[in-house]
Design a protein around this nucleic acid. Structure first.
Length: 420
RNA sequence: GGAGAGGUCGCAUAGUGGUCGAGUGCGCUUGCUUGGAAAGCAAGUAUAUCCGCAAGGGUAUCGCGGGUUCGAAUCCCGCCCUCUCCGCCA
C-alpha cells in the first residue's frame, strides 16, 4: 500500500509507475473517491462536535429532539461513507509499489542479465532431468505422492531426504555468519497478515490454501509470517537492521501450472524454504538488497552451481516489490530454443520498501522520537525442491549416480548418491 | 475440548451511562533547589486523522468489530488474545 497523501500529490508518478508495470488502474477515480471521502468525514466530524458539546450534561427534552436529529444525520453520513469506503480501499490496495527507476522496462522476458557464474555444462553422455534420475535412484516418489495427497505432492526417501537436510544446514551455517537470527515460523497465518504481505488469501486467482472454517491460510513462504512477526510494532533500529533467517514449510496451490516447464520437483504444492527477511531504515534498504543478493550468490557459489543473476523488469515485479533480482540455475529439465537445458529460478531477492510495512503498520523510532515506516526486504537462502533440482541435474554422472557438492559432503556423510 | 477470570494511557492500577482522552502511583522530560546527586517542589508526558501559512481547532482511539442510547471505557452481541483449573496428547 502506498500513502494516500503521496498518491494525491504525485498522481503523475503513480500513473507512470502503473504504465511501466502494465497495471491498469483508474487513478483519477481513486483521487475523486478520496476527495469525496474526506468531505463526508469532515461533515460527520462537524456534526459530532456539535453533538458532543451539547452532551456534556443531561439535556432537556427539546434538546433531546434536536440531538436525535443530529444522530440521524450522522447515521446517514456514515452510511454514505460506508458505501463509498470499500471501493476506495480496494482501489488504494491495488496501487502497486513505486518502481526503482533503474529496474529494466518491459515484461517477463525483458529482464536484464546482471551476472553469470560458471559455464553451461556439457556432458559426455545423454543428460537426464532430475525426475528421471531421482526416481531411478529411488529417492523420489511422485506417484505415491499423488496417491496419498494429490498431484504435485511427493515422497522423498533416503538420500533425497538427507540432501534436503544437508542443504538447509549448509544454508543456516552460511547465512548465520552475517548476523541473521534463526527462526522457525508457523506454517499458517491469519488472512490479514497474508494480505498485508501482498498475497490474496481468497478469490479465484489465489495462490494459497485456506483452512476451512477459520481465518487462517497455509503460508506460501515465511516472508508472510516474518512480515507479520513485527506487525503493529515500533522497532528500535538504532543498532542496525533486524535480520532474520526463517525456516518454514511452504504451500502453494499453483493453479493450472502443469506441463513440461513445471515437471518433477520444479513446481510443487509443498516444500521447505529458508528465507532471509530484513526490517531496516529506508536509507539502508538498497544496501540490504545488495547484501541479500551477495549472500544468495555466495550460497550458489559454494555449491558450485551454474547460475545467472537477472534484474526483473518492471511489469514482472509483483505489486510489493520496488526492485527484484532472481538467481536462475541451469537445469537440464528446461528447454530453450528447442535445445535441452535452460534457466530456472531458484532464488529471489526483493526490496519492498515501505509497501508491506505500511499495510502491516511496522514503524521504527527515530532519534528525535518520531516514527517512520520501515523498509522490508526478503530473499531466498535455500528453496528445497528447486536447489535439489539444480544440484541433481548439474551433478549427474553417466552411470545414473549423482555427485554430492563438496560443501554438502560433511552434512550428508557421503560424496555420491546412488553408487555402491 | 470443558469450566472460570480477565484485556484501560511506557508499567501498575482507579473508573459500571454524561462534567472521562480518562484519576492516582511509578517511570520519563524540563525547571527550581544543590558543590554534585538524592529527596522535595512545580510543570509537562499518547497516537492517528482532518481544517489551517501559522497560532490553533475538530474528530477518533480504554483488545477488535457491531448494537442499544440524545450520549458508551461503562450496557448487549460476536470475534481475537491472555491467565487459572479439568480433560486429552507428540
Amino acid at each position: 500500500m502506498l500513502d494516500i497523501h503521496f498518491i494525491r500529490e504525485h498522481a503523475d508518478l503513480i500513473r507512470e509507475s502503473c504504465r511501466k508495470r502494465r497495471v491498469v488502474l483508474d487513478v483519477d477515480r481513486l483521487l475523486s473517491l478520496d476527495t469525496t471521502r474526506r468531505q463526508i468525514i469532515h461533515q460527520i466530524e462537524t456534526v459530532r462536535a456539535d453533538r458532543k458539546r451539547s452532551s456534556k450534561s443531561k439535556p432537556s427534552d427539546e434538546q433531546i429532539m434536536r440531538l436525535r436529529g443530529l444522530g440521524e444525520q450522522i447515521k446517514r453520513l456514515e452510511l454514505e461513507l460506508s458505501t463509498l469506503e470499500p471501493g476506495y480501499k480496494e482501489l488504494l490496495l491495488q496501487v502497486p509499489n513505486l518502481t526503482d527507476p533503474k529496474a529494466p522496462e518491459g515484461g517477463e522476458g525483458d529482464f536484464k542479465i546482471v551476472a553469470q557464474h560458471g559455464s553451461v555444462p556439457s556432458f559426455d553422455f545423454q543428460p537426464q532431468d532430475h525426475e528421471t534420475i531421482m526416481t531411478g535412484l529411488g529417492i523420489l516418489d511422485l506417484e505415491r505422492g499423488s496417491k496419498v495427497a494429490a498431484s504435485k505432492f511427493y515422497f522423498l526417501k533416503n538420500d533425497g531426504v538427507l540432501l534436503n537436510l544437508a542443504l538447509i544446514r549448509y544454508g543456516i551455517d552460511l547465512v548465520s555468519q552475517y548476523g541473521y537470527e534463526l527462526v522457525q515460523t508457523p506454517d499458517v497465518a491469519r488472512n490479514e497478515i497474508l494480505a498485508g504481505i501482498g498475497f490474496t488469501p481468497r478469490g479465484p486467482e489465489t495462490q494459497v490454501y485456506s483452512i476451512e472454517n477459520t481465518e487462517l491460510s497455509l503460508i506460501g513462504t515465511a516472508e508472510i509470517t516474518m512480515g507479520g512477526y513485527h506487525a503493529g510494532e515500533i522497532l528500535d533500529l538504532s543498532r542496525g537492521p533486524k535480520k532474520y533467517l526463517a525456516i518454514s514449510q511452504c504451500f502453494r496451490t499453483e493453479g493450472g501450472a502443469y506441463g513440461k516447464v513445471s515437471k518433477g520437483l520444479f513446481r510443487v504444492h509443498e516444500f521447505t524454504k529458508l528465507e532471509m527477511f530484513i526490517f531496516c531504515r529506508p536509507e539502508e534498504s538498497e544496501q540490504m538488497h545488495a547484501e541479500l543478493l551477495r549472500i544468495e550468490r555466495e550460497i550458489c557459489d559454494g555449491l558450485h552451481l551454474v547460475y545467472r543473476v537477472i534484474d526483473i523488469a518492471a511489469a514482472d515485479l509483483g505489486a510489493p516489490a520496488y526492485r527484484k533480482y532472481d538467481l536462475e540455475a541451469w537445469m537440464t529439465m528446461k528447454e530453450e530454443g528447442g535445445r535441452r537445458g535452460g534457466w530456472g529460478e531458484i532464488t529471489s531477492a526483493s526490496n519492498c520498501t515501505d509497501y508491506q510495512a505500511r499495510r502491516l503498520n511496522i514503524q521504527y523510532r527515530k532519534p528525535d522520537g518520531s516514527t517512520e515506516f520501515v523498509h522490508t526486504l526478503n530473499g531466498t537462502a535455500i528453496a528445497l525442491s528447486r536447489f535439489p533440482v539444480a544440484i541433481i541435474e548439474q551433478y549427474q554422472q553417466g552411470d545414473g549416480s549423482v555427485e554430492v557438492p563438496e560443501v554438502l559432503q560433511k552434512y550428508m556423510g557421503k560424496r555420491v548418491i546412488g553408487s555402491s
